[in-house]
Design a protein around this nucleic acid. Sequence first.
DNA 1: GATTGGTTGTACCGATCGGTACAATGTGTG
DNA 2: CACACATTGTACCGATCGGTACAACCAATC
Lengths: 198, 198
Amino acid sequence: MRATTKDASPRDELLSALGEVFRAHGYEGASLALISEATGLGKGSLYHAFPGGKEQMAEEVLASIDAWFVREIYQPLRTAADPRDGIAGMFRGVDTYFRSGKRVCLIGVVALGGARDLFAERVKGYFVAWVDALAAALRKLGHAQGEAQHLAEQAVLEIQGALVLARAVNDPKVFARALERSQERLLETKRGGARERR
Amino acid sequence: MRATTKDASPRDELLSALGEVFRAHGYEGASLALISEATGLGKGSLYHAFPGGKEQMAEEVLASIDAWFVREIYQPLRTAADPRDGIAGMFRGVDTYFRSGKRVCLIGVVALGGARDLFAERVKGYFVAWVDALAAALRKLGHAQGEAQHLAEQAVLEIQGALVLARAVNDPKVFARALERSQERLLETKRGGARERR
DNA sequence: GATTGGTTGTACCGATCGGTACAATGTGTG
DNA sequence: CACACATTGTACCGATCGGTACAACCAATC
């Protein structure tokens, strides 16, 4: 067994450590000194691994987060035999990933921060992919196209808001409650909607 | 009639300008150079007005935002003869304040950013005051205590999440839709719940 | 018109920023 | 062992950071 995040590739571990620094201090707040300390790597190694400097570090961190969500959340949402399983899996995955509300969403942090423009594409892609994948699952549940899209948008936005609020009042239970409510609303038998569509 | 940025006290205008800088660049990203440019004041004047430096500037900006919400949102929520008016007023006020989703919540930005700890109290106070005031209005609408609290928490978190998502995908309509849905859910006649309580 | 006290621009401070140069190391291959 | 090459620590760069010192300025009062 390796270290921090189980046996991942060394670069993945590095990206993971970088992610925590950006999470904790934001893009501009994460100085090379902090990064160096958190990763145990000197500037030499850092700039050897990321010739593009801090911006490349952040970009790759965001990309790896995006990839994780695609693999663990978005794809199951689309391919699950029963869409309910995909949706339930999404909430399970989200709860784990955000450490039940004790961890913050780096993509959200970047979206609100001053570095937004630098990573605008990446940030936008992450969220629309999420909404679209969830909407696809909801369609399979019997919701009409527009309704599915709005429900998905609503669910994603609730998760983001819950992270903000939980962090602000320093109470992870806010996040847990929000996930609970959101999942319940998405998964309630929804006979009405199913009827509407046939 | 005095408009927001119109003939307010000079210090209020100053705080307003400061707020926009912090909003756009975050606490750490808002350098004294940027602040000086945005306010038209040199360092001399700045440090004359805020001997405590950048931290005092941010603290006072946050305090003035908090005061605005207390006056324009929280108090009407508690004192409106018809709680529905208070709630509708909240959504109107929020929509105006956040420029229909084109403006971001500075308190939320701080909550997620690296300066969180510096202003933790202020940030927490803002949100719990909001939730509590809204919950009070919902109680008057006939909701049970716990349910009112959860509904209020949910509404506030939706607003924050909508701001994040709207900013992330660069589409203010996301915010508009979220406000619409949230208000509708809060104000729906709620005969069921009213019955439950008697 | 002199004096005064609040207000301002400007020069400057040490510290730290992100980034570069490069020499000293390690490491695998012949 | 010798070589090649990837990896690393360290010294250093100019720019900018937040903050301070202070002299010039200003309107008001006498």
